[in-house]
Design a protein around this nucleic acid. Structure first.
Length: 280
DNA sequence: ATAGGCGCCTGCTGGC
DNA sequence: TGCCAGCAGGCGCCTA
């Protein structure tokens, strides 16, 4: 589930709750996560000050103090992940896989992930954080990419726009919801070949992505099923969807019935009128 | 080398 | 009412 706006919301929620604090105990379940947690890390993260919380693509990055050697605690939410600070008294919800008890003992940072497509990792020293993301082939942040580089990246793939936007190596953080929302915003058809669009279209798409992601962050993300922020609260951007999940309903721009197709193995919603047909 | 398909998991929904 | 197929916000591996 969580795409860039949801992950950013989790980070913003957790930052004031975690910064400056440390873990005094870690409990891990035996269920294997896609990004598997090594039980030896339970000990390694203890008693280190949490220095910084950030985000890269859909990854949450927590820096721990470690005498000059970098130590990064990473989380990925997959499709159904939740990362929240909760009271230690609260009994863990089903599918809670990691629990980090905070100093003082009364609160815990908990990772819950029913589908287990997410996970966590600890990077100590080398490989560096940059190497980790290089190995993952993680592309640039949408807000940082230059118009020129963006147009260049799109021009180099024959895949359809929808598949290109979902490719984390082309641009980091966009998932199925915000790909559809951005393509609608830019009036571009999801099946259009990325290399076929004009420089002007590429630029309007870049702006649309940044605009949609920023609006979603302001709304604390989209809560469809599982998603909640780092404080357990739901987002509200699902109320502002222009196209995602609206198949069969009238387009908010022109009233034409919103269509649903399958592209890159994912459901893709678009308006046949104002997003045109590819090549048309 | 690139692009598409499948599998990994659990839970919920809709149709029969 | 109950069952089961199909589908869900992601991503890595395999194949053509």
């Amino acid at each position: 589930m969580p795409e860039l706006p949801e992950v950013e919301t989790i980070v913003r929620d957790l930052r004031p709750l975690l910064r400056g604090r440390s873990f005094i105990a870690v409990q891990s379940s035996r269920k294997r996560l896609r990004s598997a947690w090594d039980r030896r890390w339970n000990e390694a993260v203890l008693h280190r000050q949490i220095v910084r919380l950030g985000r890269r693509g859909k990854w949450i990055v927590i820096d721990l103090a470690n005498d000059g050697t970098p130590m990064h605690l990473l989380f990925h939410m997959g499709m159904s992940g939740q990362l929240r600070v909760m009271s230690s008294n609260e009994s863990p919800a089903r599918h809670t896989h990691l629990m980090f008890t905070l100093d003082g003992g009364s609160q815990q940072l908990r990772l819950r992930d029913p589908r287990r497509f997410g996970g966590a990792a600890l990077l100590v020293g080398e490989p560096s954080l940059a190497d980790f993301f290089r190995q993952k082939k993680l592309g640039p942040e949408p807000a940082r990419i230059s118009p020129k580089e963006w147009a260049n990246r799109l021009s180099q793939t024959e895949r359809c726009l929808k598949a290109a936007l979902l490719d984390q190596s082309l641009v980091a953080g966009v998932g199925n919801i915000y790909a559809d929302e951005s393509l609608w915003e830019a009036s571009l058809h999801p099946a259009q070949r990325a290399c076929d669009i004009t420089p002007n279209q590429a630029e309007s798409l870049r702006k649309a992505i940044v605009k949609v992601l920023n609006r979603a962050i302001e709304a604390h993300g989209s809560s469809i099923r599982d998603y909640v922020g780092g404080n357990g609260e739901q987002g509200s951007y699902q109320q502002e969807f222009r196209i995602y999940g609206r198949d069969g309903q009238p387009c908010r721009r022109c009233g034409t019935t919103v269509a649903l197709v399958r592209l890159a193995g994912r459901s893709s919603h678009y308006c046949p009128q104002c997003q045109g047909e590819p090549g048309a």
